[in-house]
Amino acid sequence: MNNNRNFFANVVSEMKKVHWPTGQEVVKYTVLVAIAVIFFLAFFYAIDLIITYVIELI
């Protein structure tokens, strides 16, 4: 039982050390991730179109 209390005390101690992002940071990182996803979506779509075109030529 003492191990459980020690574990939860350590969890609480570590959670106090966590840097929680501000609202502006969350919005900034969310926009950054959305832009990255859209970029890679367009990139792989273009690659797929090129590969499909090359295969159809053969």
Rank of each mutant, 00 (worst) to 15 (best):
M1R: 13
M1Q: 15
M1G: 12
N3P: 02
N4T: 11
N4I: 06
N4R: 08
R5M: 13
R5A: 11
R5I: 09
R5L: 13
N6L: 06
N6H: 12
F7M: 05
F7R: 06
F8V: 12
F8G: 03
A9N: 08
A9Y: 04
N10W: 11
N10A: 03
N10P: 00
N10H: 07
N10D: 06
V11Q: 05
V11W: 04
V11L: 05
V11C: 03
V12N: 11
V12I: 14
S13R: 09
E14G: 03
E14D: 15
E14K: 09
M15P: 00
K16V: 01
K17S: 03
K17D: 02
V18H: 01
H19K: 10
W20K: 02
W20C: 00
W20S: 00
P21M: 05
P21S: 08
T22S: 01
T22P: 00
T22G: 01
T22I: 03
T22H: 00
G23V: 07
G23D: 13
Q24P: 02
Q24V: 15
E25N: 08
E25I: 03
V27N: 06
K28R: 13
K28C: 15
K28F: 09
Y29K: 12
Y29V: 11
T30N: 10
T30Q: 14
T30I: 11
V31I: 13
V31W: 12
L32A: 08
L32H: 11
L32Q: 14
V33S: 09
V33H: 12
A34G: 01
A34Y: 04
I35F: 05
I35D: 06
I35G: 01
I35Q: 02
A36N: 04
V37T: 09
V37F: 12
I38V: 03
I38K: 01
F39W: 07
F39L: 13
F40W: 09
F40G: 00
F44C: 03
Y45D: 07
I47L: 09
I47R: 05
I47E: 04
D48T: 13
D48R: 11
L49K: 08
I50F: 12
I51E: 13
I51M: 12
I51C: 14
Y53R: 14
Y53E: 11
V54L: 14
V54I: 15
V54H: 08
V54N: 06
I55Q: 11
I55Y: 10
E56M: 12
E56N: 14
E56Q: 07
E56Y: 11
L57C: 12
